[in-house]
């Protein structure tokens, strides 16, 4: 490599093993109201939804709330073996403390990087 290209060189990593974790970007919405969750409560709600559908054995895998932004979007990390279970549990969750609520899943991915942008909600500036 010449000195010039060395300045811009980057490390390319290809990992062909199965993904250890899956990441879910989601937000919890209550009916007719905004969201008022802190990360502790959110974690509690998620664990409750898992135990409701799959019981204690099914909910034994840890779900991490990596980030909870002010807009209510949460980033979850889950081992890939229980990814389908978690997503299914979030889908079937409909009530918390008697209040109707819903998890709207925006994006799922096996790599955290690809959650940085979402082509489905991409707004073409010329069209709006």
């Amino acid at each position: 490599m010449t000195g010039d290209s060395e300045k811009h060189s980057y490390l390319r990593q290809v990992d062909k093993s199965p993904a250890p974790y899956f990441y879910i970007k989601t937000s919890l919405e209550y009916e007719g109201r905004g969201l008022e969750t802190d990360s502790l409560q959110l974690k509690h709600v998620i664990m409750q939804s898992m135990t409701e559908v799959f019981g204690q054995v099914g909910a034994s895998d840890t779900v991490d709330v990596l980030k909870l932004s002010a807009s209510g979007e949460a980033l979850l990390r889950v081992p890939s073996r229980s990814f389908v279970k978690l997503w299914g549990a979030l889908t079937l969750f409909g009530k918390y403390n008697g209040l109707p609520c819903v998890f709207r899943v925006q994006q799922v991915s096996s790599s955290l990087m690809s959650l940085s942008c979402n082509s489905r909600t991409w707004d073409i500036p010329a069209m709006s």
């Binding site: 389908v84 997503w87 299914g88 889908t91 609520c101 819903v102």
Partner: peptide, 18 residues
Amino acid sequence: EKAIELRGPYDLSNLGLL
């Protein structure tokens, strides 16, 4: 019967696995 009971199409294609 209510909008809150709707789920997105991608959620459903995961739910189908269950």
